[in-house]
């Protein structure tokens, strides 16, 4: 592999990791508060559609992003009502949200644009423009530093935002009172309740943040990574994000490492038909399945055990 190809692969790794990172942090915050969320995929898909649709109609990508966030938060609230207020099964609710998004995006896209369930291609201001980091042009010809700097420069704003969300999430969870309470709600809600803090309120808060982040993931997918929405465009990324979250054992910095690894796998799978590792030709399907296989291995506890927040998945019932 020559230097230029290498740089290209890393460049696309960053871009492919971005939606994963948003969604992974979204799931992380939700699950830290004790709400399992396998509906990341659906929220991302719904946000991708509405972001592209509104960006196309208004010609302004940022209005699109806001619309994407709004629909994703709305779907998060459905999940919240089902799993917090009505104490329903969080996993079933997540499955329902995934299907709801898969169906309704195509029905509405067909109704609005009549292009077989897609939005028209986005151009100009309806698409997210890349930001060139300062001195990117000047440094481009400098050996070694130039290409490396080039990998980090020239991405859409949401790429940088996603990576800024990593320290922000860490700070929120581990250095603020809100974060302490949020984690406590996921481990021992009864104790939080005894302290006079609303478990329901904390959980709704976490679910709403999760919605915002999934909205950003989806909006980036359709306006940054691609130029428009197509049917099922999230293509399992919500589940890969879930896998990354488990892989990272619900920790923000590790989550960044996990999504970069999974992003790299996807970038390599996109670029090459098969890849040789130590004289062994790995078929492309192995690269595609690797995130899932790794997650199963981690879950099985063969390489360090992944233990979810203790109260995860169970609704909180106040004692009488």
């Amino acid at each position: 592999m020559d230097m230029a190809t290498f740089a290209q692969v890393l460049d696309s790794t960053l871009r492919l990791a971005t939606p994963l990172l948003f969604a992974c942090l979204a799931g992380l915050i939700s699950e830290r508060a004790g709400i399992f969320d396998i509906g990341l995929e659906g929220k991302m898909l719904a946000a991708a559609f509405l972001a592209a649709a509104i960006a196309y109609v208004s010609g302004n990508v940022w209005l699109g992003v806001l619309a994407g966030i709004a629909i994703s938060v709305f779907m998060s609230l459905i999940h919240g009502v089902a799993s917090i207020t009505f104490r329903g099964n969080q996993l079933i609710s997540g499955v329902a949200i995934n299907f709801l998004a898969a169906g309704i995006t195509v029905v509405i896209a067909q109704n609005w644009f009549r292009q077989g369930g897609r939005t028209p291609s986005l151009t100009g201001d309806a698409r997210m423009a890349p930001i060139d980091l300062p001195f990117a042009d000047a440094l481009a010809d400098v050996p070694v530093i130039g290409p490396i700097y080039g990998i980090f420069s020239g991405h859409a704003p949401l790429v940088y935002l996603a990576f800024l969300c990593v320290p922000a999430t860490w700070f929120l969870l581990f250095r603020t009172r809100f974060g302490l309470r949020l984690r406590a709600v996921g481990e021992n809600p009864a104790a939080v309740d005894t302290a006079g803090i609303s478990v329901i309120g904390m959980r709704y808060g976490a679910v709403a943040i999760c919605g915002v982040l999934c909205g950003l993931a989806g909006a980036y997918l359709s306006t940054g990574l691609s130029a428009g929405f197509v049917k099922d465009m999230s293509a399992g990324r919500g589940y890969i994000a879930l896998a990354a979250m488990i892989f990272a054992k619900w920790r923000p910095w590790h989550a960044m490492g996990a999504v970069l690894l999974f992003g790299l796998l996807e970038a390599v799978a996109n670029r090459f038909q098969s890849i040789e590792v130590m004289g062994l030709a790995l078929p492309i399907q192995v690269m595609q399945a690797l995130p899932y296989i790794l997650t199963v291995v981690i879950l099985a506890g063969f390489v360090g055990r992944a233990i979810p927040p203790r109260a995860g998945g169970s609704p909180y019932v106040k004692e009488h």
Binding site: I78, V81, A82, S83, F86, G88, N89, Q90, I92, S93, V95, A96, I97, N98, F99, L100, A102, G103, I104, V106, V107
Partner: peptide, 15 residues
């Protein structure tokens, strides 16, 4: 798919 999702939502999660 939408109907399927709503059936899952109402019979499963919003029971």
């Amino acid at each position: 798919v939408v109907i399927q999702a709503l059936v899952i939502l109402f019979t499963g999660a919003l029971d």
